[in-house]
Design a protein around this nucleic acid. Structure first.
Lengths: 166, 166
DNA sequence: TCCATTTAATACGATATCGAACTAAATAGT
DNA sequence: ACTATTTAGTTCGATATCGTATTAAATGGA
């Protein structure tokens, strides 16, 4: 913490040093909680996914179900904030599992369109059904209002961070 | 969604089906935002870490700085919600980088105590210093109040999920 | 039209993560 | 005290993730 104050003195900060300390802890704590909640939720969901598939797989299928299929690998990679190479690998796994198919992209011969198969749609429904009981339990102790109240800030923050990435 | 309603009809839910649908989307959306924010924050932090180290490494060092060193690998693994084997690997990397040392555990000969080295403390200070400017920028557009307002719910939720894991 | 630059996707190598099986020490039940 | 069970940590094999370099198609400027 001494070191932090020294940095502040160097001119990067224009607020009182003790406040800087407080605020650092606050934002830091926020992202820490987000990280742990994400870890716990990931574990929980992953343990329920059929066929030993992972969150990365479910994320893609869910994306295609929500926003419609026919998207390109790069679009999906960008939406999920992962490198293209990771998405190539994830899509290969989904294709191997028979949950997606590739179609040629009529607009661009370098690209592809990712299409859901019937098995893919079935997988999505099954995964959702498997998770829902957990949500119910959760909502027994945490009223939906609280999630609803927390969501707008998270959405704004996500949009901001998304736009701010270089 | 048809499938979800069918599940509800089976007796697992005791609320109106349209509400179930809404609530599912709400909670789902919440965890989705948490996941993306975590992904963006991880990227951001990782790109600033010295020595090409990763979040997993920083997480351990930060944990030891906040709560004091001398903890065992299993304690750290539990706190971070990762398997023991992952922590073994992460700690090996930290040791190789000279940021931690192992000491025998006087209470239990099977176990170890993880101790920070001076280099480890320096690494922590440098990492914090490297991230702080980002926080400052963030706080320019998002007042600290909003983080402060969001934090308690996240903490309660984390505690709940932590306790609820089997 | 032709060539340089950009862009979509992949190949490859390095590291991270995880589950299952294993070893050794502690604990519990008799 | 003795044995069975539990617990801490590691080893090992499989897969995930990511950065760099590569290929092929599109784009843009002469």
């Amino acid at each position: 913490m001494v070191r932090i104050c020294r940095l502040a003195r160097a001119g990067h900060w224009n607020i009182r040093l003790s406040q800087a300390d407080e605020i650092g802890k606050l934002v830091f704590g926020f992202f820490n909680e987000v990280g742990i909640i994400n870890q716990l939720a990931t574990r929980q969901l992953e343990s329920k996914l059929p066929g030993g598939l992972l969150i990365s797989h479910f994320g893609v299928i869910n994306h295609l179900m929500r926003l419609g299929d026919g998207r390109t690998p790069l679009q999906i990679a960008t939406a999920h904030q992962v490198p293209k190479t990771t998405m190539t690998h994830t899509l290969a796994g989904l294709k191997k599992a028979g949950l997606i198919e590739f179609a040629p992209n009529p607009k661009d011969a370098r690209s592809k369109c990712v299409m859901l198969t019937d098995a893919g749609r079935r997988f999505h429904a099954e995964a959702i059904a498997a998770i829902m009981p957990e949500f119910q339990t959760l909502l027994g102790d945490f009223p939906a209002d609280e999630f609803a109240a927390a969501l707008p800030f998270l959405q704004r923050l996500r949009g901001y961070m998304d736009a701010a990435r270089d």
